[in-house]
Every structure is written in C-alpha cells, then in structure tokens.
Amino acid sequence: MASRHVSQVIGRTPDQVYEFAANPANLPRWAAGLANSPVTIDGDRLLVDSPMGQVTVRFVPHNDLGVLDHDVTLPSGTVVNNPVRVLSHPNGAEILFTVRQIELSDEEFERDLEMVAEDLRRLKELLEAQSS
C-alpha cells in the first residue's frame, strides 16, 4: 500500500487553522473530497454524505498538538485512517495530510491525491480571506 503526503502552507496561525479545520460545521466549506453537505453529529462520530456515499468519520479528541487524525468508515465497511497535522511554519501554518492507497487503483489514488490538494487549497483560500 502506497502513502503520500500532501501539504499546504496557510498564512494563519497554527491555532487558527486547527480550530477552523477541526470544526465539523466547516467541513463542507473546504473538504469537498469528504463532505459535500452539512455534517450530522452523532456522539463522537460524524455522518457525512461524501462523493463515495455515506461515510462515518471519527476524529481524535480536540487537542493542543494540531493533530486532526480521523478514521473514515467507507460504505464497504473498510476503515481508512487519515493522519493530518497542523504544523508551525515560518509563513504561518502548514497542514499535512497523509493519503493512503487503500482499495484504490493507481489512477484512483492519483485522483484522491489531487482532491486532497484541492481541499487544502480551498482551506487556505477560506482562511486567508478571513480578517485576522
């Protein structure tokens, strides 16, 4: 199984990036590869209508370390762990997403990588457009 890292530098503090990205209500605004409609919160899980069908998402608990790891349970029942970190960067923050090739052809994996890159670009645009 292959893994690749996709990252984006954002001109905001790591805390600002983390808080925005960790808020389930914001997912449809920037994470189109995961959520394309409002998210339903059910205890510690999120029910999400995604391009893959309805998925269940569980994020690690809120933390001060910038860790946004989350497990996505696909319609097939497969659970995909997605490591995500918000790191300090000289220009603000860097968000780093590890994409794993699970149940994907090489072509689908490349498409997933581009979708994640586009989501992170959208996150950057949204956050940098906000006044500090």
Rank of each mutant, 00 (worst) to 15 (best):
S131I: 04
N82C: 12
R122N: 14
A117S: 15
L126C: 09
V67C: 05
E125N: 14
S105N: 07
L123Q: 09
P14F: 00
V72H: 07
P14L: 01
A129M: 14
L113G: 09
A32R: 11
N81E: 14
M115L: 15
R4G: 08
L127T: 01
L65Q: 14
E128W: 13
F59A: 04
W30N: 04
Y18Q: 09
A129L: 14
V57D: 00
L126S: 06
R121Q: 14
S50H: 07
F59M: 12
A31E: 02
P28A: 12
P28H: 09
Q16G: 03
E94H: 05
L96T: 00
E103Q: 15
P90D: 12
E19V: 05
L123V: 02
S37Q: 15
M1A: 13
H89D: 15
L65R: 15
Q54W: 01
R12E: 00
R4C: 13
S132M: 07
D44Q: 15
D69W: 06
D42E: 15
E114W: 11
M1I: 06
V80A: 09
M1L: 14
G43Y: 07
L65G: 03
G43C: 10
R12Q: 01
P75N: 07
V55K: 06
S37E: 14
L127P: 01
E108K: 09
L27N: 01
D15K: 13
T73D: 07
R111F: 11
E107W: 03
T78D: 11
L68P: 05
N26Q: 14
N23P: 05
E118I: 01
R100V: 06
P24F: 10
S76H: 07
H62K: 13
Q101K: 15
V80G: 04
V60M: 03
A93M: 06
N26F: 08
I95Q: 04
G53D: 01
A35W: 01
N36L: 13
G77C: 05
A93S: 12
T13Y: 01
